[in-house]
Amino acid sequence: MELLIGQMFAGLSLGSVLLLAALGLSLTFGQMGVINMAHGEFMMAGAYTAFVVQQAIADAGVSLLVSIPAGFLVGGVLGLVLEAVLLRRMYHRPLDTLLVTFGVALVLQQAARDIFGAPSVDVRAPAWLQGNIEVLGAPIPLTRLFILALSLLCLAGLVLLLRGTPLGRRIRAVVLNRDLAETSGISTRRSDQLTFFIGSGLAGVAGVAVTLIGSTSPYLGTSYIVDAFLVVVAGGIGQVKGAVIAAFALGVLQSVFEYSTTASIGKVLILIVIVVFLQLRPQGIFSLKTRSLA
C-alpha cells in the first residue's frame, strides 16, 4: 500500500513538472503553430533567475516567493523578444521555427555556460519545504507537493484567463479561426505577442519550480524539452485539458515503467506507448474539430 501510494505520488509529481513545462508550449504551439525548442532554455533562464534572486535575498522562503514572478517575467520577456525579432516573420513556415529556435537554444545554453559556468548550481529550498509528510504511511516530500500545487495553480490561472477574460476570448478566437478573428477586429498581432509572453513566462515559472527538486545547469532545458513536446503531441495540439491528462498519464506511466524495469528501458517503453496511442488517435486525446484536411 505504501509502495503503491509512493509510486502514484512519484508519477503525479513527475506529471506536475511535465505539466508546468508543457502548459506554455501548448499555448505557443497550439495558437501559433510555433515549435519553440528554446522553451526548455526559457525554463533554464527561470531556474537561474531563482539562483540570482537567492544571491540577493538570503532568506530562502522570501526569495522563492520573489523568484516565481521574477521567473515569469524573465521567461516572458525572452519569449517576447524571440517572437518580435524572429518568429513573427516565420508563421507560414512552422517546421522551420523548430530549427531557428533550436539555434536560439544553443546560443542561450552557451550564454548560461559563459555567465554561470558549466558546473551546476544549487538553490536552497526554504525551511518550511524541507522534510516529508506521511500519507497512509508513505513519505511524501513537501517540495514535490509544492510543485504539484504550483502547477495546479498555474493551470487554474491559465484556464481562468482563457475562459473568463476578454483577452482569453480573443486568444481562443484566434486559435479557432485566425482570419475570421482578424476580420472581426481582433488584433492578431497583439494576441500573438501576449500568448507568447504568457507561454514563455510559464516556462520561467517551471524553471523556478524545478530548482526545488534538482540542481540547475545549462543543460536543464534539454532534459525537459522532448518530454514536454510529447505531452503536447499526445494531448492534442492547442488543448489545455489534453495536456493535463497527457502530462499526468505520462508521469504515472513513466514512474511505473521505471520502477518495474530500468530508467532507460522505461523511456523507450514510453515512446512506444505514444506511437501506438497516435495510431489510435492521430490528433491526440482531444483535437479541434475543423473541416480542414490538415
Partner: peptide, 29 residues
C-alpha cells in the same frame, strides 16, 4: 506506423526527435 495514420508535420518531427532521445538514453543505460 506514422505516415499511414497521416501523422505529419510537427507531430512527425517531434516523434523522430523523441526516438533519438530514447535511443541515446537506452544506450547509456
Amino acid at each position: 506506423a506514422v505516415f499511414k495514420r497521416r501523422v505529419k508535420g510537427a507531430y512527425f518531427a517531434i516523434l523522430s526527435q523523441a526516438l533519438a532521445a530514447a535511443f541515446a538514453v537506452f544506450l547509456i543505460g
